[in-house]
């Protein structure tokens, strides 16, 4: 799929975002669009502001200027815990699993926004609260089986190998059936074979889901992305298809002296 810039109707967009943190201008008039049904990559050298973009999209940070727009609507005062209801799901750098819950329980919590059994029904063990949980449990096991981690269901994150933990985290973010997935360095710390598998997995989600990917591993980014945005020092310096970005002199200059995997 080819995307022509500027995008006409991005599903998720940052519009002219600027933010200053502890006196440093982290993002300066950044506009980024994420087209529906595609995999979009966000790359840049360390300190370029990639994570800040994610943090603004997930409501951890409020920009000084600019808007986040989702599905045509401006999102004001994003509350992180409302995101899944909107259909936006995010993974965290590392794994961000809950250490004292089993893998299955972790995945089930990913569906929190879809299950609404009140605390009162819960405390009485009401049948409808139970059946909702049972349904969710079934779905969670299904997703985990799909990911090849059903064996780990009853294990705690601490006893699982890192790549398995990563899969649990991704399964957790998928079970809320999001329209948009924000993946924060999903390939961090996993092997080349796992990375290829991850790439296939991400591609398989489209076009039902939209993916925004922050990643250091150029190999993965170049392979799976339809569209790539390049940030450097808080500004967008390039955008386009993987091929366009790969040959862009500004990108090469920005990465000069830093490791380029591609």
């Amino acid at each position: 799929m080819k995307y022509v810039l500027p995008l006409t109707h991005p599903l998720l967009a940052l519009e002219n975002i600027s933010i200053t943190l502890s006196g440093l201008k982290i993002l300066d008039d950044v506009s980024i669009g994420v087209p529906e049904g595609a995999v979009t990559g966000l790359i840049g050298p360390n300190g370029a502001g990639k994570t800040t973009v994610f943090n603004i999209m997930s409501g951890f940070l409020t920009p000084d200027e600019g808007n986040v727009r989702f599905d045509g609507k401006k999102l004001k005062h994003i509350k992180t815990h409302h995101l899944t209801k909107l259909g936006i799901s995010r993974t965290l750098q590392g794994v961000g699993l809950f250490a004292s819950l089993t893998a299955l329980e972790n995945v089930m919590l990913g569906g929190s926004s879809r299950i609404k059994s009140g605390i009162f029904a819960d405390s009485l063990g009401a049948p409808w609260a139970d059946s909702a949980q049972n349904k969710l449990r079934g779905e969670a096991l299904e997703v985990m089986t799909e990911f090849g981690i059903a064996d780990a269901a009853d294990r705690y994150p601490g006893e699982l190998p890192y790549p398995v933990q990563k899969r649990v985290a991704i399964a957790r973010s998928l079970i809320s059936d999001p329209k948009v997935l924000l993946l924060d360095e999903p390939a961090g710390g996993i092997s080349a074979a796992d990375m290829a598998e991850l790439g296939r997995m991400i591609r398989s989600w489209t076009p039902e889901r939209t993916v925004l990917l922050v990643e250091h591993h150029m190999e993965l980014v170049m392979e799976v992305c339809d569209l790539i945005w390049v940030l450097d020092a808080g500004k967008v310096i390039a955008s386009g298809t993987p091929e366009q970005v790969r040959t862009n002199p500004a990108v090469l200059a920005a990465y000069l002296g830093t490791e380029v995997d591609a």
Partner: peptide, 11 residues
């Protein structure tokens, strides 16, 4: 365990 991760999953 992790309030930020909890918020991210919708809690």
């Amino acid at each position: 365990d992790d309030p930020i991760a909890a918020a991210v999953v919708g809690i």
